[in-house]
């Protein structure tokens, strides 16, 4: 059980993987520490600027020249992460400092990549949070109670339990989970 705190960065529905990390940047090597940092720099750089940081928009997720964002909790609507299977997308969010994404629903491959790679916790919330939460508000997530608190408005929202994947999330990814359960033998 733990508490995760951070500032909210709010996006809309159907945030696709080209918005999360535009394809021209996929050339950088994920295994090279310096090149991997570039994914943080370009995280969410494909989001149309008027939709970046709702409700007002026009806010880049990462300040130009930086590779870390000051927002560590991303809030989205429906079908977050739709599109490509590129694992560079959850890596980009992690490299920018994202600890949690909360969306109404996820595209399957993005969700799976986030869980199996152990990059951040992908929570679902049945409430359409982009209508409720504003970018820059302070959020707190109680992972034990599956609860989101908006510290700025004092409102609380229930998060859907992680269910089947909670053991993989707790282990930190599919390899850590498999090692724990002696599954890496042939």
């Amino acid at each position: 059980m733990s508490l995760i705190r951070g500032k909210a960065f709010v996006l809309g529905n159907d945030v696709d993987t080209d918005q999360i990390i535009p394809a021209q940047h996929l050339v950088y090597n994920l295994d090279d520490p310096q090149e991997r940092k570039l994914y943080g720099q370009f995280a969410l750089s494909g989001v149309p600027i008027h939709q970046s940081g709702l409700p007002n928009g026009n806010l880049p997720f990462v300040e130009p020249g930086n590779d870390l964002s000051c927002f560590s909790i991303v809030v989205g609507g429906r079908n977050f992460g739709c599109g490509s299977s590129r694992e560079h997308a959850p890596v980009a969010l992690q490299m920018a400092g994202v600890q949690v994404v909360i969306a109404e629903s996820y595209a399957r491959i993005f969700y799976r990549n986030a869980v199996d790679g152990g990059y951040f916790i992908p929570y679902e919330c049945r409430v359409s949070l982009p209508q409720e939460i504003r970018t820059n508000e302070d959020l707190e997530i109680d992972t034990g109670a599956n609860l989101l608190r908006d510290l700025s408005t004092k409102k609380e929202y229930p998060l859907s339990p992680l269910g089947d994947v909670s053991a993989i999330v707790a282990a930190g990814g599919i390899f850590e989970y498999a090692k724990k359960h002696n599954m890496l033998g042939r």
Partner: peptide, 10 residues
């Protein structure tokens, strides 16, 4: 079906 790098490595 499509998968990411981690699943493919597994």
């Amino acid at each position: 079906t499509g998968i990411g790098n981690t699943d493919a490595a597994f």
